[in-house]
Design a binder for these strands. Structure first.
Length: 299
DNA sequence: AAAAGTACCTGCGCGC
DNA sequence: TGCGCGCAGGTACTTT
């Protein structure tokens, strides 16, 4: 469930259930999900057992649960990860890789299942390190967060929906770079949360070609691009993210509805909503780029 | 430092 | 029906 709106949908679902919950069981069905965890699966399970969840936080596409051990359980959904909350004994979910049992603050039993077809996702425990600016490390509306982030997510910039996101600083960075604008939108070290869908949507709204060198774009248009990107993410969060198939679900296994509002991504050969020219898909950087060849011309 | 390419995985739909 | 190919929402690592 990859980009910011999908991850935020999951974060909110976890936040509603797991703040104050205690971990009382860990089952690692496929150790490959722990490939970014520094210890063994056994050590992972022992470290988590008995710990209490203090908050559910997110920066960009990274999720973490600060624990009463002063460390955090970190999760990333990769390309095909889901986190589902089930009552124990609920019918099995295909591709379940790790399960955690919780006792909630109001004494209910919940099973968290990390489901991931392709296993690009990950779970790990990690130390928390102080982030650059002293502001809260990530987004955690249920519980105030201190200024720390997991070490494994500390190289990621603040995301577009973070209250401390500095749009003007990002514009200044983009204005110095020669790379194509889409590559930079996808660079989580510059601004985080955008993936292939929302990059294409942001560029469509901004009438920019994906390979336009960033520093050749007038700064007012860069500002407009950042604002469009933020708006796209906000609108997608409101609709529970984008779901095309069985892959992308919230913690209850339900789909989001933003796909109805996509203008470029996945719309190859369909008429552009602005000018009716067929949307084109180019092979680009080992993936695809969707754009209107009329509205979004390189200059 | 920045840019670009590759590896990591499974499964689906398509054309032959 | 079966097979090979291209394709899929991401990140980390390597090389230039």
């Amino acid at each position: 469930m990859p980009e910011l709106p999908e991850v935020e949908t999951v974060r909110a679902g976890l936040g509603a259930e797991l703040v104050g919950a205690k971990i009382d069981g860990v089952v690692v069905l496929d150790p490959r999900l722990l490939k970014r965890h520094p210890g063994s699966p056994k050590q992972f399970a022992e470290e988590l057992h008995g710990r209490t969840v203090l908050a559910v936080a997110r920066r960009g596409k990274f999720l973490w649960l600060p624990l009463d051990s002063d460390r955090a359980l970190v999760g990333h959904l990769g390309m095909s990860g889901q986190i589902l909350l089930r009552t124990p004994g609920y019918v099995e979910d295909r591709h379940t890789r790790v399960t955690l049992q919780f006792e909630t603050a109001d004494n209910r039993s919940i099973e968290m299942r990390f489901v991931d077809q392709r296993i690009f996702g990950a779970l790990l425990t990690d130390e928390l390190v102080v982030s650059e600016d002293g502001n809260p490390g990530g987004f955690s509306p249920e519980v105030p967060l201190d200024s720390r982030v997991p070490n494994s997510a500390s190289h990621i910039a603040r995301d577009l929906l973070d209250p401390f996101f500095d749009a003007e600083a990002v514009v200044q960075t983009l204005a110095t770079r020669s790379a194509g604008i889409k590559r930079l939108l996808l660079d989580q070290g510059i601004l985080s949360g955008i993936g292939n869908i929302y990059a294409d949507e942001s560029l469509w709204r901004s009438k920019l070609h994906y390979d336009q060198p960033a520093k050749s774009i007038p700064q007012p248009r860069l500002r407009e691009l950042v604002a469009h990107a933020k708006a796209v993410l906000e609108e997608a969060v409101e609709r529970g993210g984008t779901s095309f198939d069985e892959q992308y679900k919230n913690v209850n296994g339900e789909s989001g509805y933003f796909s109805q509002l996509l203008n470029a991504y996945g719309r190859s050969d369909e008429p552009c909503a602005r000018c009716s020219t067929p949307i084109r898909r180019d092979s680009w950087a080992n993936r695809g780029s969707h754009f209107c060849p009329n509205c979004q011309r390189a200059f």
